[in-house]
Design a protein around this nucleic acid. Structure first.
Lengths: 108, 108
DNA sequence: TTGACATATAAAGATTTCTTGATACATTGA
DNA sequence: TCAATGTATCAAGAAATCTTTATATGTCAA
């Protein structure tokens, strides 16, 4: 996703689709709580299952949603799988919202 | 929404709910395209209907979603209703993502 | 190799969201 | 007041999303 003015990005179907997917990944309470836990550093799925008292397959579903959006990455270590936030994509979102905000502050 | 560390915010049910709603509002392509148009300044619904070639009731539906989330505000002027972005809420989102990003960059 | 454990995937139903077409509401000008 | 216009709301169906239960996959230890 190039560093374009947001007004231009929001006219490019590809960027619009990508942004919609990113925001969708963040639009669910369970997923936001997962993000909250991952702020403490990489976490094993088992830790998250305990901390969020969500069923195992439910957690797996949401972890996949976050992963498909690129917000987290996973790493297998033996039987365990660890998930971690992907700062790059967070930076992307921040830049986008930041530019939108700047333009809006000027014009609105 | 207080200026808390994101890890703490994401443990507060109210904040989690609010954030999920904000992100949901941004998770639809039609709504993102509306935001793109509003970056050109306040717009009449009729302008948006033309620019996005979306049906009138469909547009109304999405404008309501953006308004309910607090991302835009509306102003009636005679028969016309104008919508504009709300920079404050954009700033809120930016701050949130920014803090998440910072923490993530350190720990991940 | 087998059994146990951690996680992922699949299938089905429940719920939510989106789209469309019809209708209601508000404002203006005649 | 009435007709025309711009916008909002409603109702119904379509589509997407989420939850749950069951099953599959992968890894380790015995």
């Amino acid at each position: 996703m190039a560093a374009l003015l947001p007004a231009r990005m929001l006219e490019r179907p590809r960027d619009v689709t990508r942004l919609a997917r990113l925001f969708h990944a963040l639009s669910d309470e369970t997923r936001l709580r997962i993000v909250g836990k991952l702020l403490g550093g990489e976490q094993c799925v088992c830790t998250l299952t305990d901390a969020l008292d969500a069923g195992q397959s439910r957690l797996s579903f949401h972890l996949k949603a976050l992963k498909d959006a690129g917000l987290v990455s996973d790493r297998r270590e033996g039987r365990w799988v660890h998930y971690a936030l992907n700062p790059d994509v967070l930076q992307e979102i921040k830049s986008f919202i930041g530019s939108v905000r700047e333009v809006a502050a000027r014009c609105c």
